[in-house]
């Protein structure tokens, strides 16, 4: 038996909107730790890792570890039927082939339940060891989204370079080229507006902008984004979900032949 009650139901709606473009079908894993997911896109270039910790739910019952295969587009369709202020409860029976999403309006005068068929998904979990990154950039998530969107009108790839001077996003295309440099800026009024660069070594990596733009669908989840870079590793783009966990996107770099 599984019963997870999330008072801030809009979080789950936003999570689905942020990952459904990248991944079609995925297993949601439920354990005493929380509600989680790890899934790669079909080309195995990008991976999403989601964690919603059990403590973040108002009620969290998970009698045994469960893995529930869901089509994310169908799940998003159902969650779209929940109001932004609704409380969402996820329910499933052990060994069952459906999951139920229950939506309660804040005043309890409307209660809906939507039952969705589960699917069997062969998922391959990648082991991702904890890594020391050469540079970690924390910046406003809206600024990062704007940069990715702007650069994708010029080119297909972005070179992200971190030096003492700041973080540089560069692209090149048929019509020309573009460079956007963000300097460390910690003297702003609000901490969420700061750009903070924590660099141990300079780093420069090339990535497909198509994926970066897809990751920025998570912007509504967090005011800030952190971008962790190492010269020999995929980039990690992380959106923290307030008091609950995170959505992390991993993206393998492009290399010069």
């Amino acid at each position: 038996m599984l019963e997870l009650r999330l008072v801030q139901g809009s979080l789950l709606k936003k999570v689905l909107e942020s990952i459904k473009e990248l991944v079609t079908d995925a297993n949601f894993d439920c354990s005493s730790t929380g509600f989680s997911l790890q899934a790669m896109d079909s080309s195995h270039v990008a991976l999403v890792a989601l964690l919603l910790r059990s403590e973040g739910f108002e009620h969290y019952r998970c009698d045994r570890n469960m893995s529930m295969g869901m089509n994310l587009n169908n799940m998003a369709k159902m969650l779209k039927c929940a109001g932004n202020d609704d409380i969402i409860t996820i329910k499933a029976d052990d060994g069952g082939d459906t999951v139920t999403f229950m939506f309660e309006s804040p005043t309890q005068d409307k209660i809906s339940d939507f039952e969705m068929k589960l699917m069997d998904i062969d998922s391959e979990h990648l082991g991702i060891p904890e890594a020391e990154y050469h540079a970690i950039v924390k910046m406003p998530s809206s600024e990062f989204a704007r940069i990715c969107r702007d650069l994708s009108s010029i080119g297909d790839t972005v070179v992200i370079s971190v030096t003492k001077e700041g973080v540089k996003f560069s692209t090149k295309g048929d019509i020309g080229s573009a460079n956007i440099v963000c300097r460390q800026n910690t003297s702003v009024d609000k901490p969420e507006e700061a750009t903070v660069i924590d660099m141990n070594e300079p780093v420069s990596l090339t990535f497909a902008l198509r994926y970066m733009n897809s990751f920025t669908k998570a912007t509504p989840l967090s005011n800030t984004v952190s971008i962790s870079l190492s010269n020999e590793l995929p980039v990690v783009v992380e959106y923290k979900i307030a008091e609950m966990g995170y959505v992390r996107f991993y993206l393998a770099p492009k290399i010069e032949e």
Binding site: M40, S43, H44, V45, A46, L47, E124, H125, L126, G127, I128, P129, T157, T206, A208, E232, L233, P234, Y250, A252, P253, K254, I255, E256, E257
Partner: peptide, 14 residues
């Protein structure tokens, strides 16, 4: 030319 690497080049399956 640029080549897109896959995640398996960095991580292995559990």
């Amino acid at each position: 030319r640029e080549t897109q690497l896959r995640l398996e080049a960095f991580y292995s399956f559990n």
